[in-house]
Design a binder for these strands. Sequence first.
RNA 1: GGUCCCGUGGAGCAGCUUGGAGUGCUCGCCGCCCUGUCAAGGCGGAGGUCGCGGGUUCAAAUCCCGUCGGGACCGCCA
Length: 583
Amino acid sequence: MSHPYRTIGAGTLRSDHVGETVTLSGWVARRRDHGGVIFIDLRDASGYVQVVLQDDENSHGLRSEYCVRIVGDVRARPAGNENPELPTGAIEIAAAELTVLSEAAPLPFPIDGQTAGEVGEESRLKYRYLDLRRGSAQKVLRMRSAANAIAREVMLRHEFVEIETPNLTRSTPEGARDFIVPVRLQPGHWYALPQSPQLFKQLLMVAGMERYFQIARCFRDEDFRADRQPEFTQLDLEMSFVSRDEVLDLAEEIIVALWRELAGVEIPRPFPRLSFADALSRYGSDKPDVRFGNELVDCTEYFAQTPFRVFQAAHVGAVVMPGGANQTRKELDGWQEWARARGAKGLAYVLVQPDGELGGPVAKNLSDAEKAGLAAHVGAQPGDAVFFAAGPIRREALELLGAARLEIGKRCGLIDESQWAFLHVVDFPMFQPTDTGWTAEHHPFTAPTAEWLDTFDKDPENALADAYDLVCNGWEIMSGSVRIHQSDVQRRVFETIGLTADQTESKFGFLLEAFQYGPPPHAGAALGWDRITALLAGVDSIREVIAFPKVASGGDPLTGAPTPITPAQRKEAGIDAVIESAN
RNA sequence: GGUCCCGUGGAGCAGCUUGGAGUGCUCGCCGCCCUGUCAAGGCGGAGGUCGCGGGUUCAAAUCCCGUCGGGACCGCCA
């Protein structure tokens, strides 16, 4: 039986098919018109094959990206004309029949060819359906599909249940701005799109599902970054009757399976674990890139008696820039600008001269004893530069140095790009200070660690939460926590962050009510699926792994979204309805 | 809300520092030639409000101000 369009994939043809008559359908990737004979590279989802056509009006008129059907015989290429570069290079199709299924207008940018990857992003997104015809883009989306399948396999093997949760819901307690949707049936009332399925998955634990997962779309109305889109995908999961390590084990299993099958790399387990406190001290970040060392050095004690006013601070730290002493004045000034762009006053530096003497504007402010031992204390060699951050708030000083460390890593080529450096960051602070008190660092349902169960509300500054992040090469790719299931603990958390009973009732009364009916101990996490697939694909932006992403102003160049609405739509949606009790 | 980079025929770039005719490169497009190419080749051709507006100047792609669009980052995103 023959198929009207295709009997076999173009890219699958090999020498053993010689002699067969095949029907192929696909696109004209390239054509080479010699007059009497015309070669075209026919592309379909399986790959390419060379088709040989005799010159006639039909074949001569073929252009790039015409959609065509070819019937012809597979034959071995004439001796000497094989192309070992191509999987199908030993054979070719002698076309007996050519049907143009549809023509293509001249292309807005090259699809096949060497410049294909260099096209401006706006143009690529406007014609995303053409952009996606390119092999590299196809590969990425197919890989993402495979990643989904691998994750599902792992989850189902562990008896997780895949459950969908609403996209039209109410505002949840995460910290981001909500996208809101007017409700025609209740003018003046609005749905919120979920920032994550957080509350629903906890309700599913109350419901006795025990193990839930979902490849869930999440929505947060915040500004874009290379790794942030307003709608993004998480592999969301929650487990009953487990503690932290079982969640981390499962996460490792998912990651190892993904990297094994999609990157061909065996990631050793268990992944290293680092406390938040150590991550901050050593790397100045809660998502350290540990593909290189060059760790921060604490200098607070070292400068305890310093005559230099700037270093008479609660916290002084340093990071070394190898070979940084021979930077030009302009480059060193550039670092000051770089630091100011991050809200710092500047970035003090000392240059270790080849003879070991210290140079730079800061050196003359230091005592002789300080100068003598400084290079040894921070681990600097002659020729290095040492950057310092000092200030009243330890975390701020360390984060500035952490950013400098990353920048140094990039500029000095310290980062081993071939490496996959996974680690769990654990024991986050439970609360962070606000102008008036405390707020939850993670979210208000995050449990304290066992040591802090009795005392977290007496010492919120130092209390630790049983929360965890998974980091790869400096990207946060998973975040989760053990949840609170005891009502008295929950009540104490609300009191600590200053929520009144009325506020908790109106914000998440339904969850607290559910928790009156025998909630199981539970814990969970969400894996940033766009970031994980971007890492696997080796691309710099998650836009590359999303079929139809948005640009930084929130628009989609292809559809033109968002658009204004008509007065009729506005009226029908009830956007302008006023509710007296609204606040 | 802020900082920085980019915007030049369909694509990707150079030209801008030091103002002087839309000047150049690679690719694509159109036509003709061409029977073994695979980034085919040869000849010829078309295609531009230099993002937009204003200013300086005898003269602006080039300098200045503003604005729009894209990107990176800070803030923001627990």
